[in-house]
Design a protein around this nucleic acid. Structure first.
Length: 577
RNA sequence: CGGGAUGUAGCUCAGCUUGGGAGAGCACCUGCUUUGGGAGCAGGGGGUCGCAGGUUCAAAUCCUGUCAUCCCGACCA
């Protein structure tokens, strides 16, 4: 490609609307343009990157035995009504009607439509297992699209669905995908980590997320440097840490704590450490009130609570509501004598001796509260948010933390959708069984943005060679000089003949402009031809990711570049790097 | 959906407080010079000031409404 022909409009200044670095750089370097909030046009450079990522994904899915197909974006309401998600999905689904008034949606995901397909076409155990996938647009009417490509309303996704005879088959498909996903992100040149994850609204009971590690990531992850434990903090666990308080149980006593509502205020007033407090939070779970207890120095993890309750909607109860029902302000609620609602206590609560808790009366707390004696926590479950430094639940080594961008997630679905949509097969014994399913997604456009978040510097993008829009840029410092121009032209043709993806910057621009744009766009390798080097029979060779530039012989350069690109691609291809 | 902010040329923004000429830099076009890190000089084109009402002799500027965009939160495979 000649830079003079390339449609890659660059911007000198950062558009005001872009906050995150990937958004800024992709706009500035001419990879994308915004059409509406969360909706983007992919310009030629951006589209080339997407296709590179797609092809890596495609190769790895095919290698895992999957088959590519294309499902409709425009989907009839019926299948969604069958699964019950027409109602559940809510506002996030783009809905529309045809001229006859029939309801449709733009597919936010494709479990329904593919399950409906498979139930008609798969009848026998002989047809299983089956792995089917597609790469296409998804539509979700996000309440707040943001961060450029990282959270759009229209985005490109690879979604794969596995269909197995039984749990054992699903297990095999799941780990096949785990391996395939690891291969994909490694080959894309990304530092990533697979972490245990919440299954959320999609259902199912087992899941991993693939996180591209970046400080700007929204997701927080904890991992163990000693064993292989790694999890999203949404579900991460650690060993409960009992207090070393071998005190004898003292008699329960009500004390006045006027105006002291928060943990800090109560601790300061009573002269106790926050670890000795029982924090009581009242939640409304699908309309029903529940109490959740964690230690005063801990944070409650709402996802854990929601999973423990098995509810759809969970929110903190309103202070007015609490006052109406219990006649007490939020700061003075406590588990002792709290009648009529279920109590969920964190694993650390039963270890407490002579704790402090709200007395369910304004301006009073109980001291010497002893779980088991003074109240019965009916449900003791893991509720607290894990913190870095706590012991790994597997091996006890202190956990470390990092941030990540979720680029993929794999789920064991089980029979949730096959039962709802009656997708069954007949086994060897002639018995009808529900197909056991899994689903597996990769955000293709998000991966592109995540790559930029992870690989950039103050000058611009630094594409990993495997997903760069072009591998090499050839820069003649002046095209007015016929010798330079011809030599650059020759080198460009040589590279093309070797199958190297090259851009020749044949524009009549100053060298500085070409360098700055090359750095911004992020070509992995830059070859510069100037008068100095020309007379010496060399070319200046510089990797985008390195600082140093070196003069290399012009002779045989095409082949040398080919080999160097090949070598870096192979390094990414090799497992275990 | 709650809170905050912003809409003026392709991009970044000034002008608005205190109403009267639509501006700057970059980008674009022409010419000359320049050519190893976003050049210089000269000339030129380009904007219903988001949109709709209102106040006024007069509105980018004041008022009301509305739409869009961004940020925080809530939400979120």
């Amino acid at each position: 490609m000649r830079a003079s022909q390339l449609f890659a409009p660059t911007l000198k200044e950062t558009p005001a609307e872009a906050e995150v670095i990937s958004h800024q750089l992709l706009l500035r370097a001419g990879f994308i343009r915004k059409a509406a909030a969360g909706i983007y046009t992919f310009l030629p450079l951006g589209w080339r990157v997407l296709k590179k990522i797609e092809n890596i994904v495609r190769e790895e899915m095919d290698r895992a035995g999957a088959q590519e197909l294309v499902l409709p974006i425009l989907q009839p309401a019926e299948v969604w009504q069958e699964s019950g998600r027409w109602e559940l999905y809510g506002e996030e689904m783009f809905r529309l009607k045809d001229r006859h008034g029939r309801s449709f949606c733009l597919g936010p995901t494709h479990e329904e439509i593919i399950t409906a397909l498979v139930r008609n076409e798969v009848n026998s155990y002989k047809q299983l297992p089956l792995l089917l996938y597609q790469i296409q647009n998804k539509y979700r009417d996000e309440r707040r699209p943001r961060f450029g490509l990282l959270r759009g309303r229209e985005f490109i996704m690879k979604d794969l669905y596995s269909f197995d005879r039984d749990e054992a088959g699903l297990e095999e498909s799941y780990w096949k995908m785990y391996t395939a996903y690891s291969n994909v992100f490694r080959r894309c040149g990304l530092k990533f980590r697979a972490v245990e994850a919440d299954t959320g609204a999609i259902g199912g009971n087992f899941s991993h997320e693939f996180m591209v590690l970046a400080d700007t990531g929204e997701a927080r992850v904890v991992f163990c440097p000693s064993c292989d434990y790694a999890a999203n903090v949404e579900i991460a666990q650690s060993v409960p840490q009992p207090l070393h308080t071998p005190d004898e149980q003292l008699p329960l006593k009500k004390v006045s704590t006027p105006g002291k509502r928060t943990v800090e205020e109560v601790c300061a007033y009573l002269g106790v450490v926050p670890q000795r407090l029982i924090k009581t939070l009242l939640y409304e779970a699908d309309g029903q009130l529940v109490a959740a207890l964690v230690r005063g120095d801990r944070e409650l993890n709402e996802i854990k609570l929601q999973n423990a309750l098995g509810c759809q909607k969970l929110k903190l109860a309103e202070p007015e509501q609490i006052r109406k029902i219990f006649g007490v302000s939020v700061g003075y609620v406590g588990p002792v004598g709290l009648e009529g609602i279920p109590i969920y206590a964190d694993l650390e609560i039963p270890y407490l001796v002579n704790a402090v808790a709200g007395a369910n009366a304004d301006d009073y707390h109980w001291v010497n509260v002893n779980p088991g004696r003074d109240f019965l926590p009916a449900n003791v479950v893991d509720l607290r948010e894990v913190r870095v430094g706590e012991p790994c639940p597997r091996c006890g080594h202190p956990l470390e933390g990092c941030r990540g961008i979720e680029v993929g997630q794999i789920f064991k679905l089980g029979t949730k959708y096959s039962e709802a949509l009656r997708a069954t097969y007949v086994d060897e014994k002639g018995k009808e069984r529900p197909i056991v399913m899994g689903c597996y997604g990769i955000g293709i456009s998000r991966t592109m943005a995540a790559a930029v978040e992870q690989h950039h510097d103050e000058k611009g993008i630094i594409w990993p060679v495997s997903i760069a829009p072009y591998q090499v840029v050839v820069i003649p410092v002046s095209v007015k000089d016929p010798l330079l121009r011809e030599e650059a032209e020759r080198l460009y043709k040589e590279l093309e003949a070797e199958g190297v993806e090259a851009v020749l910057d044949d524009r009549d621009e100053r060298a500085g402009v070409k360098f700055v744009e090359a750095d911004l766009i992020g070509y992995p390798l830059r070859l510069t031809l100037g008068n100095r080097t020309l007379s010496q029979g060399t070319v200046d060779w510089k990797w985008r990711k390195n600082q140093e530039e070196e003069a290399v012989p012009r002779e045989g350069l095409g082949r040398r570049v080919k080999e160097a690109i090949q070598k870096s691609l192979e390094e990414l291809n090799a497992p275990g790097t």
